[in-house]
Amino acid sequence: MTVETFHPGERAVQARAGVQDRAEHVGRGIGAVIPAVAARFLSDRRTLVVGATDQKGRVWASMLSGPAGFLAADGESTLAVAARPVPGDPLAAVLETPAEVGTIALDSAGRRRMRLNGRSVPDGRGGLLITAEQVYANCPKYIQRRHPLDTPSTPELLGSGSRLSTRQQLAATTTDTFFVATAGPDGRVDASHRGGHPGFLSVHGPELLSWPDYPGNNMFMTLGNMELNPAAGLLLPDWETGGALLVSGQAEPDADRTVWFTVERVVELAHATPLTWSEPEYSPANPPIIRA
């Protein structure tokens, strides 16, 4: 493993957890090439979660979607994405120009996922070209099994603000899956998946959320970014309707690795994707919900 595999924030969190050796071992699997098996995996996906930073320094996470094949490896180190964020999405303007992005492709039905981080540019045809800098697979933990269903619809911006409404708080406290985007000290962005039983994302009011950081691959890329840059973005998909709740704010992990998230901006989209999803089969890895 080279020194550049992890930045100082990631190494600091790994050291506190006592997993430096494990992180070094797992980190050897990170590359800048899209292997053939990863290319096949991506070509079958219907969605791609993308994280990026806007001009005000806010980090957002969003979801792109299309038919199978809308994601395609273009050579060994480029991912072609035949989609852009829908109107009203905070990342719509960001991705009209070159941007650092973090992405995660999730196979809910097969409980598989992989991440590809790099630099995105518009392709001139309404899509994106992402030059890969980090490509790696993740373990299947905490993924709820779901199957996509095509539900043609028209995207709509439902509203935006600086705090969660009562209805949005209810959606947050009942979710079993969300995605979190963070940015490192060099501006590079990472997008990650978080899953658990409904209630694992706690709502403490319209401006404060928290969640436990469950054991994972020990690389601590998300917490490592938060160590040096608290800006973060959450994406809470509405699996029943295809809607999406996008939240940007500041994240601070405590000594017990509970992440406390202060809400700064909220955007809600109806029909953010033309997909709805089947009822979940919860992951057997989900820990029980424990309330203090």
Rank of each mutant, 00 (worst) to 15 (best):
A83E: 14
M1P: 12
S153V: 02
D176R: 09
S77H: 12
S165E: 00
L275C: 11
S202K: 11
G51A: 10
N218S: 15
N225S: 15
R113L: 10
L245V: 13
G249F: 04
R265A: 13
T103K: 05
A23L: 03
P230I: 08
L158M: 12
S283Q: 06
S153I: 02
T103L: 15
I130K: 10
V180P: 05
C139Y: 02
H204L: 04
D190H: 15
L48M: 08
G224N: 00
G233V: 11
E133H: 14
S248Y: 04
G18Q: 05
N218M: 08
I290F: 15
C139V: 03
V26D: 00
A292M: 02
V267H: 02
S153M: 01
A172T: 06
E4L: 06
M221R: 07
Q134E: 00
V263P: 02
D176T: 04
P274Y: 13
T258A: 04
D54H: 05
M221L: 12
R16Y: 04
L91V: 07
G88T: 04
F179T: 01
D254T: 01
L79C: 12
G110L: 03
Q250I: 13
V267D: 00
A255W: 07
T273F: 04
H147M: 04
V86N: 06
V13T: 02
V59C: 06
H271V: 11
S43L: 01
I130Q: 07
W60I: 03
W260F: 02
M226C: 11
E133I: 09
G29Q: 14
K56A: 15
Q14V: 07
T97E: 12
P288I: 04
A52P: 11
A244G: 06
Q250L: 14
V81D: 03
L236W: 11
S120C: 12
H193A: 11
E4K: 10
Y214V: 12
P206Q: 08
P274I: 10
E156Q: 15
P122A: 01
I143S: 09
P85N: 00
I289P: 00
G216M: 05
R113S: 07
T182D: 06
V59S: 05
Q169R: 13
V26L: 00
V19W: 05
V19T: 05
P35T: 03
A39T: 09
Q14E: 12
E279N: 12
R146A: 00
G127N: 08
T173D: 06
I104N: 08
P90R: 01
E279S: 10
Q250Y: 12
E207V: 15
G159W: 13
E240C: 05
S120L: 08
D123M: 13
R115H: 00
W260G: 06
T177S: 12
A15F: 01
A23M: 02
F179V: 00
K141F: 09
A36N: 14
V266Q: 05
D123W: 12
R125H: 14
F220Q: 03
Y214W: 10
G29I: 14
N117Y: 08
D21C: 06
N218V: 04
A109P: 15
L245C: 07
V19C: 07
N229W: 04
L223N: 08
E252P: 09
W211S: 08
G184Q: 10
E240R: 02
